[in-house]
Structure formats: structure tokens, C-alpha cells
Design a protein around this nucleic acid. Structure first.
Length: 776
DNA sequence: AGCTGTGGCAGGGAGG
DNA sequence: CCTCCCTGCCAC
């Protein structure tokens, strides 16, 4: 019984919650009875029922109902019986007689919060009691099959001409259907939708932005037509509700959807999390994604989003074809991206459609489930901050090669296992136990994958091992997570500091053996091998000799060999691969926010530098200058895209209070009169002809650009090009740099570039800087 | 309602 | 000019 629950085990989950509930009821009923014995088996749990105890200070408050009632907003878990009794006593003193629920409105919200919640007051005063609040939804989540939330984001559903409903439904056999509303009333269309879903009885309903578009749309139209959509598995109605959320001081409305018995998968969310680490995609629109992954059909129908209603009236068959293509692409996207999630659903106490986005939340659910199962109290999060991170350094700037890349396999998880790092509050040792278990499971799965002959089975195993990887990699971050129940900042520091020590040890070892370091970052090193080890066999031998010096459980592995490397700055470099491809890393060299012309320029320049084609760079620079001046670049090459974190109102407030400066992106959005959501992307370019223009006063939204009008500010972009060229100034002597990046239109009079070379030089590493300052 | 971490580069506005 | 500060993006 000491093992941790892994694997899908619905029964166990429900039992755990029910037992907790019964215990709580028993405790509450016996309050005042002094004969209750301390029994670890019946660990004291305490429920109270109230609304908006947290995060709703600007709203009405109701007193809590202590006895009776069948549902509970918060679950408090006490460490000692005595603590709970104190809380109950305190509660009874402050409550109306008989614990009868009564309404009280707040005057001073934060005070009322304390006043009206004696239990929380007790917890805060004593600081001894450890607690974790669990929302009502947490309890329900463990018992209900499905619960779906969504962001609101669709305002057009009230237009009378919108009569099209498109939905993609799929189950394990793969299935597509389009509902067409031609010659039908909208009520009839909903009835058809209902029949289809009932007949097909899908486990899963998939859609691209289905939570942001399709469901809000359907909900709105159903409401307008007074139609009830009974698509739950037990023919219950789809439950749509509006939730008011408190974001700091503002109130935001969101829609929530619940289809009992079914899982809803939004492929937009899948692709967002897929791209969060990879950053390959320009946009998350279905069409762009399908093209990117190469499953967009050549005969695919494309229709401008704004012309959907119009097309439906004029050429409904065309629209149906378009919709069917949408469905097919969604299906493929879901197939590709949902596997990992599917296996996570078998490990975590969440349903398939309900897996949280954040990785810390995922592993915490494992911990909490195990503590609940063992009926053990749960700690309060630590207050504080992690103070250290990974060690990064650069030793050589310029060109080096051939270069090898070696990295420590799973550095932080390995450290946590080898050095037995775990949160101080983890009484049950769940952290170490789950980390070890998951790591072993992953290694076993990978082993199994290698010998598996069947490709479908292999893909399944791959999805499983990558699900496990997600969990394993979250353990370290969780330690430093401010809201993690089991967080432990000093444990996080131990992990990073040990990592630094190991990296420094490898650096001095490699240097000692005659290697030349180029760049290191956290768990990996780029270096030139000593001349005796330059071949394939030699590099393996060298890396494993370094690995042998490391503490047990920490392994260095050869990750790649590159003919050449361009080292720019920390976390910024480029690699020439054996097949001639160039890999570029770092925000100074690749960034999605850069104008496309700038990105292209840097990319091409790096390629040419790696091949030491300086004449080529010069020609490139002259060519780009000319193209900007002659407006040969189309407007999409000059567009700068930014993701904004604030709304326009927040931005304007910050500017007013001088907390931040004006920014071109917001000013462009304001000028165009569009609304911006936090997380939204703004694309703009600079117009006008003033060379000294402040960009925020002449920014124009890309969407406001009339077809192909190249009204960009030439002098601004010429300057911008020079700034990009400036990136390379540290790689050459000033004389050479000026020769290469001279703007002479006539190539015949180009300066002679024969003697030019990359000025590769040693950089004073942070390590040496420390030594210098110590010797002073 | 849900939220993993630190380190590093660059641009741009404001103000000295 | 320079520095400071804020924001955004990226590496690991």
C-alpha cells in the first residue's frame, strides 16, 4: 500500500474524495463532543461552504455554513486535531447561533474576508496549521466525467445571417460530419446536430478553437432560438454558463461548457503548447498549421474568414467543401498532437479533456492525490524566492571548428535523484518516489520502444515516454514555483548550484585535457577537441572520459559534431551542420518579432560568414540597401510582430503614470481602433519619411495596409538594416567591418576584400572576471 | 481559473 | 552622447 497511484484508476479517485467527505461530515457533526479520539486513520478534514473566499474581494460575501450542506467550496486540511478544534471554536464564536447561513455584505472587502472567515483567520494567525484550499470544482472534477471551460472571444454570433454550423466530431474510428443548414431552419439544424452526436455517441469532440469559437457560437445561437442542446452522454443538456472572474481589480467574463460524458479537445490549445518550446509557427490558424505540417491537401478550398456568410448565401457547396477540409485538417492535427495528452490522462487525476496546461500543476496533482489517499495533511506553500539558476559563459567569439556539443542527460532530474533533493515539507517522500518511478518508467518505455517492430505500437510507446518526460522535467521547476504546495526554494537552489558545480568541473577537465571551450549553458558545452581526438571514435572516447570524472548518476553524452560554429554571445550562436544546413540560436540572431527582411539578412550573412564569403556579405548588404530604398520589398517583409501582455487600458494607465514608455505596437493598435487582449499579437510597420522619427508616432497596423501599398519609412528601415549589420561588428576589425558593410551602389568599385578575415578571439569568461576581481 | 524556474540579449523612450 | 528602466523574445 506504500506505492503511489499511477495509471488510470477512477474508482480509487472517487473513493478518496468520498472518504474525505464522510470524514468531514463526521467531524462536523461531532463538534463539541470532547470524546473524539485522535486517530490517524481518520485524519481530520474540515469542509466549509462559502462563496468567493479567494479572489473576489470586490464582491458580496456570505457567511459560511458550517454544518450540513452537501457541497463545499473549500477543503481545509489540518495537521492536528487540536488545530481543527481551535478553528471550530473560533468559528462558532463568530457565527450566528446554530450556524445558520446568513448573508452579509462586505464594506471593506479585505477585512471582511478575514472577519467572515474565522477558519482562514485562524490559519493566518497561528501560522502553524498547514492547509490547502481546494475549490468545489476540484472535488467535482474527480467525480464528473467532463468539465470544460473556455475563453470567450466571439461577438458575431448575433448577426442574423450567420446560419452555418460547422463541427468536427471524432471518435476512435475517425469520423467526420458536416451539418448543413440549407433549406432548414436553425432549430432544425440544431436538432440534426443533436441527433448526430447522440447516434455517433463520441467520447471526444475535437475542434480548432472549438472552445473559443464553435461552442460560444452554438451556445449563443441556441439561446437566441430558445433551443436546448441535449448532447450529453445521458442526453443531458450541454451546460453553458458565464463565469465572472476577478483578475486583480478587474472583472472578466468567460464562458464555461460542460458536456457530461464527453471530452472536448481544442486543437488550438494543443498547437499553442506544442509551439511554446519549438517556436516554429508564424500563426496558429488551422490553415497555416496544416501547411506547416504538410497535411494541407493540394485541392484544399480556401475562403477568407470575413466572407463566410457571403459565400454561404452565394455558393453553399463551396462552403461545405471548405468546411469539410477544415474538419479533415483538424482531425489530422488532433491525431498528431493529442497522443501525449491521452497518456497523461492515464497517469494523472484529470480527464482527457481536462489536463491542465501547466506542468507544475500536473505533478502537483500526483502529490495531492497521494496525500489524500494516505489521509495525510498537506503543507502550505513557502514564501520566498529561488536565488540561483544555470551557469552560462562564452569563451570564444568568432569562428571555431570542428566543434562538438556534449550535454549532461537530464541534468536536473539526475541531480535530484543522485543527491536525493526533495521538498522539506514532503513528509511522505512522494517527490522522490514519483521522480524515481517516472524516470524508471520512462527508461523502460524507451527500451521497449527500441525493440518494438510494429510502427503503430512504437509511436504509442514514444507518446508515452514523451508524456513521462514532460512530468519528469517539471519536478525541478516545481521546487521554485511560488504557488506550489510543496515548493522549496533552497532545494531548488541546491539543484542549480550543484548543476553549476558539475558544469565548472567539466570545463576545467576539458581545458586540462587540451580541449578549447567555446560556449557553455547550464548543462551543455560546445568545444574544440584536442587534436588527438578529432575523429569520430576520438570524440566518443574523449566525451566518455570526461563523463567518467563526474559524480555517479551524472552522465555526459556526445550530442553532435559540427564542422564550424559561429559564436556570437552567450546563448547566441550558429552551427554549420555536416549537410551544409545552418542552425541559428539566440534572441539576438533569430526572433519572430524581427522584420522578415532583417531575419533573412542575418540568416544569409551568418551562412556567408561560416563559409568566409565576405564578398558575398558585401553584395548582400548593398542589395538589401538598394531593395529597401527602391521599395522592392513587399510590406510583409517590413512588418514587426509583438505579443503584448497588457490590454490597451492597462497600457494607457502605465504610460500615464510614467511606469512605462509609449510603444509603437500599442500606438498602432490604438490608432487603428482595435481591441487588444493580453497575449494577442500586434503586427505593424513604420511609415512616413522623417528619418529621425520616433517609431511610436508613425506606426501603422499591418492590417490597415491597403493591398501592397509600400508606404514604409525608407530611412527608418535603412537604419534598421545597419543596426542588424552592427551585430557582426565584433567579429571583424573595424577596418574590415567598414569594408564589408560599405554601401556603394556600384559593385565595380567595391573595396578589395582579399585580406579580410573573421577576427576570432578569446573572451574574458565570467569565471576569469571573478578571479581577477578577487586578486585585486 | 489557472498559473514551472533563472539567465541573457536587444530595442526604445526618458532624462541627464 | 550616456545610463536607467521596461518590455519582449529566446536558451536551457
Amino acid at each position: 500500500m506504500d506505492s503511489i497511484l499511477f495509471g488510470h484508476n477512477t474508482e480509487e479517485k472517487i473513493v478518496a474524495v468520498h472518504q474525505v467527505g464522510e470524514t468531514a461530515m463526521r467531524v462536523v457533526k461531532r463538534e463539541g463532543n470532547s470524546t473524539i479520539s485522535v486517530d490517524r486513520k481518520f485524519y481530520p478534514f474540515f469542509f466549509l461552504n462559502s462563496t468567493d473566499l479567494v479572489g473576489g474581494f470586490d464582491k458580496k460575501f456570505w457567511t459560511v455554513e458550517l454544518a450540513g450542506g452537501n457541497y463545499y467550496k473549500y477543503l481545509c486540511i489540518f495537521r492536528k486535531w487540536a488545530d481543527m478544534h481551535s478553528a471550530l471554536r473560533l468559528a462558532s464564536q463568530n457565527f450566528d447561533s446554530g450556524f445558520a447561513p446568513s448573508r452579509r455584505q462586505s464594506a471593506e472587502p479585505s477585512e471582511v474576508y478575514i472577519k467572515l472567515d474565522p477558519v482562514f483567520q485562524f490559519l493566518m494567525q497561528t501560522g502553524i496549521t498547514l492547509f490547502k484550499g481546494m475549490g468545489f470544482s476540484d472535488l467535482r472534477r474527480m467525480q464528473l466525467d467532463i468539465e470544460t471551460f473556455s475563453r470567450i472571444g466571439f461577438s458575431d454570433a448575433s448577426r442574423p445571417e450567420d446560419r452555418i454550423i460547422l463541427i468536427s466530431l471524432s471518435d476512435n474510428s475517425g469520423w467526420e460530419h458536416i451539418i448543413s443548414g440549407r433549406e432548414k431552419t436553425e432549430t432544425e439544424m440544431f436538432s440534426e446536430l443533436q441527433t448526430i452526436i447522440r447516434n455517433r455517441d463520441p467520447d471526444v469532440i475535437e475542434g480548432h478553437n472549438i472552445l473559443g469559437f464553435d461552442f460560444p457560437y452554438i451556445a449563443r445561437r441556441c439561446e437566441m432560438n430558445r433551443v436546448k442542446l441535449r448532447i450529453g452522454r445521458d442526453n443531458t443538456e450541454i451546460k453553458v454558463s458565464t463565469i465572472r472572474l476577478a483578475y486583480g481589480e478587474k472583472e472578466v467574463e468567460r464562458m464555461s461548457f460542460e458536456i457530461p460524458g464527453r471530452h472536448v479537445i481544442d486543437t488550438l490549445l494543443l498547437i499553442q503548447s506544442y509551439d511554446a518550446t519549438r517556436r516554429e509557427l508564424e500563426s496558429y490558424g488551422l490553415k497555416n498549421v496544416a501547411k506547416h505540417f504538410g497535411f494541407a491537401s493540394e485541392t484544399r478550398t480556401y475562403i477568407d474568414g470575413r466572407k463566410i456568410s457571403e459565400t454561404w448565401l452565394k455558393d453553399p457547396d463551396l462552403l461545405i467543401k471548405y468546411a469539410l477540409d477544415d474538419v479533415r485538417e483538424t482531425r489530422q492535427l488532433a491525431d498528431m498532437l493529442s497522443q501525449t495528452r491521452f497518456y497523461l490522462a492515464q497517469m494523472l487525476p484529470y480527464n482527457y479533456g481536462q489536463i491542465p496546461g501547466g506542468s507544475a500543476t500536473k505533478i502537483e496533482s500526483l502529490f495531492v492525490r497521494e496525500y489524500l489517499r494516505k489521509k495525510h495533511s498537506i503543507p502550505r506553500p513557502q514564501v520566498g524566492r529561488q536565488t540561483s539558476g544555470g551557469y552560462t559563459d562564452v569563451f570564444l567569439q568568432g569562428i571555431a571548428g570542428p566543434v562538438v556539443h556534449a550535454d549532461v542527460e537530464s541534468l536536473y532530474p539526475s541531480i535530484m535523484i543522485s543527491y536525493k533533493v526533495s521538498p522539506a515539507t514532503d513528509d511522505l517522500g512522494v517527490f522522490q518516489k514519483s521522480l524515481r518511478h517516472l524516470t524508471k518508467l520512462r527508461l523502460d518505455t524507451k527500451k521497449q520502444m527500441k525493440v518494438e517492430g510494429d510502427s503503430v505500437e512504437r509511436a504509442k510507446l514514444d507518446a508515452m515516454q514523451s508524456s513521462l518526460k514532460i512530468l519528469i522535467n517539471s519536478f525541478y521547476g516545481y521546487l521554485g514555483y511560488s504557488r506550489g504546495i510543496f515548493n522549496d526554494y533552497s532545494a531548488a537552489d541546491v539543484v542549480t548550484e550543484t548543476g553549476q558545480k558539475i558544469l565548472r568541473q567539466m570545463i576545467s577537465q576539458i581545458t586540462w585535457e587540451g580541449g578549447t571551450l567555446v560556449e557553455v549553458d547550464t548543462d551543455g558545452l560546445y568545444f574544440v577537441l584536442p587534436s588527438a581526438f578529432q575523429d569520430d571514435a576520438g570524440s566518443d572516447k574523449f566525451v566518455s572520459s570526461i563523463s567518467k570524472m563526474l559524480p555517479s548518476g551524472i552522465n555526459l553524452a556526445l550530442d553532435g559534431r559540427y564542422p564550424r560554429m559561429l559564436s556570437y554571445k552567450k546563448k547566441n550562436y550558429a552551427l554549420l551542420e555536416n549537410d551544409g544546413k545552418v542552425k541559428i540560436r539566440g534572441s539576438a540572431l533569430v526572433s519572430r518579432s524581427m522584420e522578415r527582411f532583417g531575419r533573412d539578412f542575418i540568416h544569409k550573412s551568418i551562412e556567408l560568414i561560416l563559409h568566409e564569403d565576405f564578398k558575398g556579405i558585401h553584395e548582400l548588404f548593398v542589395d538589401y540597401n538598394r531593395k529597401i530604398m527602391n521599395r522592392e520589398f513587399s510590406i510583409d517583409k517590413m512588418v514587426h510582430t509583438e505579443t503584448v501582455r497588457e490590454s490597451i487600458e492597462e497600457y494607457q494607465a502605465s504610460v500615464k503614470s510614467a511606469k512605462r514608455n509609449r510603444s509603437a505596437s500599442f500606438e498602432a493598435a490604438i490608432a487603428a481602433g482595435i481591441t487588444v487582449r493580453p497575449g494577442g499579437r500586434i503586427s505593424y510597420y513604420i511609415t512616413g519619411s522623417d528619418p529621425a522619427i520616433r517609431s511610436f508616432s508613425n506606426a501603422k497596423l499591418y492590417d490597415e495596409n491597403e493591398k501592397d501599398k509600400r508606404d514604409y519609412n525608407v530611412s527608418y528601415y535603412v537604419r534598421k538594416l545597419s543596426e542588424y549589420a552592427e551585430r557582426f561588428s565584433e567579429l571583424f576589425t573595424p577596418e574590415d567591418f567598414n569594408k564589408i558593410f560599405a554601401f556603394d551602389d556600384d559593385l565595380l568599385f567595391s573595396p578589395p576584400l582579399d585580406g579580410v578575415k573573421v577576427n576570432t578571439r578569446e573572451v574574458t569568461s565570467d569565471e576569469e572576471k571573478v578571479e581577477e576581481s578577487e586578486s585585486e
